[in-house]
């Protein structure tokens, strides 16, 4: 464990807490893409298949459980909760996310570390995570204005993978056999997808104005 990875995990945890805060405090999920939440639940369920077979550390196990439980809780809340589900922007959240699932799975069959069940699903989860934010970014683009908590949620969600890139650079220089090129390339793509969001987020923060995405 290094400081970059720990910072990344904490940033990821903060993004989840901000999302839960937004939904429970405002009893609304407006501006949140249910499709992105479903993709993230799938990412965690397919990445942590080794949850009960490979014990790495208490921290690792607890964080995996937190990520799986929180992503499923958000999806269930957005689908079932009678108050929250009414505020879902159903007609704006129309990204065809099934194509992202299909593309990630095909790519995982072609490019993986080992052609085994667990490795293919691990690579699938890495590729899917890189693309999972697209429905959310499209939804924000369409709705134009971004409320503070939603903006912070997306910002922290993007920032966590940037910390992981620093972690991979650090591990590359400090560990002989370290090579995680699948995660590195995918993590880079993931972070780049946030580039324009980060730009407009920074502009709104600098001008202390409400965040506006160009329609």
């Amino acid at each position: 464990m290094n400081i970059f990875r720990f910072a990344g995990d904490m940033t990821h945890l903060i993004s989840i807490l901000v999302l839960l805060l937004k939904i429970y405090a405002t009893k609304s999920c407006s501006g949140i893409s249910l499709k992105t939440q479903e993709l993230y639940a799938l990412v965690f369920l397919t990445r942590y298949l080794d949850l009960f077979t490979d014990f790495i550390s208490v921290y690792n196990t607890i964080m995996k459980l937190v990520f799986i439980a929180s992503s499923l809780a958000v999806v269930c809340c957005m689908r079932m909760h009678r108050v929250v589900r009414r505020s879902y922007d159903k007609d704006l959240d129309t990204f065809r996310h099934y194509f992202l699932i299909l593309a990630s799975f095909v790519l995982a069959l072609l490019v993986n570390e080992k052609f085994t069940f667990q490795e293919i699903f691990w690579a699938f989860s890495i590729y899917l995570e890189a693309l999972a934010i697209l429905p959310q970014l499209v939804l924000l683009q369409r709705s134009g204005n971004v409320d503070n908590l939603t903006g912070q949620y997306v910002f922290f969600l993007g920032a966590y993978r940037a910390f992981y890139i620093l972690n991979w650079i650090y591990r590359y220089f400090t560990e002989q056999h370290f090579s995680r090129w699948i995660a590195c390339v995918s993590g880079l793509v993931q972070t780049v997808l946030y580039a324009d969001f980060f730009y407009y987020y920074f502009i709104s923060w600098k001008n202390n104005a409400k965040m506006q995405l160009p329609a």
Binding site: R5, D9, R47, E113, W122, R171, E175, Q176, A183
Partner: peptide, 10 residues
């Protein structure tokens, strides 16, 4: 240096 465990990251 022991081989780092596969997928020891979240």
């Amino acid at each position: 240096q022991e081989q780092p465990r596969e997928h020891d990251e979240l």
